[in-house]
């Protein structure tokens, strides 16, 4: 999980257009509060699909799934379970 969290932070750094350094975010920090717009969250979603070789199903395409490093890690954990 912690390795995933580091990769997620790297994706956020490149795509989330946050107003602070992604490295300083807690796992439960609200990314929208940290400046991620809806459009930026789409870019984060697409970049995570590439980084983790996953595809987010429609029911995961909502704000709460991308609201924090922890929430993203949980979703990715679910999608990569049993790999």
């Amino acid at each position: 999980m912690s390795e995933n969290a580091a990769r997620i932070r790297a994706v956020l750094k490149d795509h989330a257009r946050l107003n602070r350094d992604a490295e300083t975010l807690d796992d439960d920090s609200d990314l929208y509060q940290a400046g991620m717009t809806s459009h930026a969250s789409v870019n984060v979603m697409l970049a995570l699909e590439g980084e983790f070789d996953i595809e987010f199903p429609d029911h995961m395409l909502k704000r709460s799934v991308f609201e924090s490093v922890g929430a993203i890690a949980a979703a990715i954990g679910e999608l990569t379970e049993g790999r």
Binding site: S38, H39, S41, V42, L46, L61, K62, R63
Partner: peptide
């Protein structure tokens, strides 16, 4: 597109 689904959900949620 797919990103659009996410934008639409976000718009509805807010």
């Amino acid at each position: 597109g797919k990103g659009g689904k996410m934008l639409a959900t976000s718009q509805l949620e807010q």
